[in-house]
């Protein structure tokens, strides 16, 4: 990953965090150049593009599309790609926050307050179904 792609990644994340939505390629510069850069960053797992388009899907730990993991932090609501990423949003923003989701089994709402990086309800459990060696085989499923 060269300096040009790192700079594109920095501007992509910066736009997203400032505005709360993901930029189109044209909003960051020459469309074709930006798309080519995003594709290289996707190949390096530094951003995730939609499988059937060149739109951004994930700016990990943030999800660009709605998910079951909503996070209130830094004065805005975000979506995390999963429970790990939901905590990751607070960590990346260096903000306290609130994670709102539901138990995948029973559907009961679950709300976790995150203060100084720690959850207020320590009784909950995190289950990871896919082994680490396979996480990027299908990152959306993971």
């Amino acid at each position: 990953m060269d300096g040009t792609d790192l700079e594109l990644r920095r501007r992509t994340y910066g736009f997203f965090v400032e505005n709360g939505w993901a930029p189109s390629a044209a909003e960051l510069g020459d469309r074709d150049s930006v798309l080519a850069g995003w594709r290289r960053l996707h190949a390096e797992h530094a951003v995730v593009l939609n499988a059937d388009s060149d739109e951004l899907r994930m700016l990990n730990p943030f999800s660009v599309v709605p998910t079951a993991y909503r996070v209130q932090a830094g004065g805005r609501w975000w979506y995390g790609n999963c429970a790990w990423d939901a905590f990751g949003i607070c960590a990346a923003l260096h903000e306290d926050g609130r994670i709102a989701t539901s138990c995948p089994d029973c559907g009961e709402p679950l709300t976790v307050e995150v203060r100084d990086g720690r959850p207020d309800d320590e009784s909950l459990l995190f289950h990871c179904l896919v082994p680490a060696a396979q996480w990027w085989d299908d990152i959306v499923f993971t």
């Binding site: 790990w84 990751g88 960590a91 990346a92 459990l125 990871c128």
Partner: peptide, 19 residues
Amino acid sequence: PGATISVTKLSELANAWWD
């Protein structure tokens, strides 16, 4: 099953991974 950890451990992991 995969792996299960406490939410406290998860928060520690997230802090180190995404900080």
